[in-house]
Design a protein around this nucleic acid. Structure first.
Lengths: 253, 253
DNA sequence: GTCTAAGCCGTACGCTGTACGGTACGACGT
DNA sequence: ACGTCGTACCGTACAGCGTACGGCTTAGAC
């Protein structure tokens, strides 16, 4: 019985919680929705580490164990959180309707997901487990597939292409979050980090052993003033990926 | 002071540990290398959750607090682990030398990283923080840049392209690990999961509201017999990405 | 009014990382 | 050979975690 990391032991139970009514309140006003909202708020403001059953309960003015009346455990709570986080940004399925070409549509999708991760960075810590198919994720999936519909991809290719874009954004967001986190932990900006660490690395990495990476690493470091630039990474990768998808269409004739 | 999540508060200290001598042993045979090896072995066989200071110490037949003589804390230990994990696969910098075209070279790089994550899945849990620039990562960076050298990319583009490929592989590996983890947690295969959950989803997702995703999701589910196919995801994405990079070269003339 | 089910929650257990202070040993100066 | 000192080692303790268990309290059915 792991104490950490989401991943419901009983998917059916979680599905019931996700799709069922979440507003049924008990006699102290407690409800699934209230619990999840409190947890999300805690995660947004103080990070996922602050989301403990004790702290969520305290925020609600309720005993710790009362939460277990409504939620089977922390695993399920985090799964509910990850669906709730999508509620803000994907309320209207129809918004990015088929206006414009597919490329600008997918760019919109990518930036929307980027914003999502900026707003709820803790989502990155919950990902990487069996996808939680909640109502809001379904809306999201529908909305994000539409730009790819009818442009010459097979159904399976549509799914693959979307997954590719979403995975890329997730990776870029993870890199971005890495910078933020490390920055405020060390109290140093990236530029300062580069100034401090750069010389050490140059000393330890003799150019004989690292001819290519010495040159390239310096160039990239100079260009970004940091060990990496997630925002540039997002745009560069998205451009290459969309080019690749374009080629997939073209080759069909 | 966070109790969880790597990210050294003192990067210089970690750098010293990474690049300095790790074999200096005390009077009970304890050394940085021994500690890190024990931790890696624990993570490989029982997952990252099993890597606690107490368990590592017990595995070494040593008191828990003795570890702190050699390692400042768990944060630094995990950083040392992530560099050590690269040791097996990237011992020889020169192996994937400029034989063959760049495309097959990068395919080799991608599969090598895929293998890395299969062998040490816990690496995925440590990523997403400031990159730990250890000696083995430096070897890796050098080796992986070489296929891209001299094919018409700028230095910054070389770095971007490599990052793109590596991020993609990481995402695919994360999806793969999600399947593994959830599978052995629920005791169900993906096919069984699909059989169990599929009907529930079809009932709850009326086709009026989800016209595109209903069709595409079914097709993808049928094709993969699972909510996703990480291995297919790896190949499909890599092909699109390399096509995109090829286009970047071609456009230059 | 009574009974029952469900909501609420205090306590306790085993786990975590690590601060602190004490012990014991290896090396070195004399 | 002997005292001294730095350092390796480690026992204990503390705050925090998820949650099992059992008891209390209350709303609703009859």
């Amino acid at each position: 019985m792991p104490t950490d990391g989401p991943g419901s032991a009983n998917p059916a139970r979680t599905l019931g919680l996700l799709w069922g009514p979440q507003d049924r309140t008990g006699r102290s006003g407690l409800s699934i929705r209230a619990i999840v909202d409190a947890a999300v708020d805690l995660a947004d403001t103080q990070g996922m580490d602050a989301v403990s059953m004790r702290q969520v309960a305290e925020k609600l003015g309720v005993g710790t164990m009362s939460l277990y009346t409504h939620v089977p455990g922390k695993t399920e709570l985090t799964e509910l959180m990850s669906d709730r986080a999508l509620a803000d940004l994907y309320r209207d399925v129809d918004e990015p309707r088929s206006q414009g070409d597919w490329r600008s549509g997918m760019t919109f999708v990518a930036h929307r997901n980027w914003d999502l991760y900026l707003r709820h960075p803790w989502l990155l810590e919950l990902l990487g487990f069996r996808p939680v198919v909640g109502p809001h994720l379904s809306d999201k999936y529908e909305a994000e597939l539409r730009p790819l519909d009818g442009i010459g991809l097979s159904d399976v290719e549509m799914d693959s292409a979307l997954t590719l874009v979403l995975t890329h954004v997730e990776g870029a967001a993870r890199a971005h979050q890495a910078q933020i986190g490390a920055r405020q932990e060390s109290g140093r900006t990236d530029a300062q980090w580069w100034v401090q660490v750069g010389p050490i690395l140059e000393k330890v990495m003799d150019t004989d052993r690292f001819p290519v990476s010495g040159r390239v690493g310096s160039a990239a470091g100079q260009a970004h003033q940091a060990p990496g630039d997630p925002r540039h990474m997002l745009d560069f990768g998205l451009a290459r990926i969309l080019d690749g998808v374009h080629g997939l269409i073209g080759n069909r004739g």
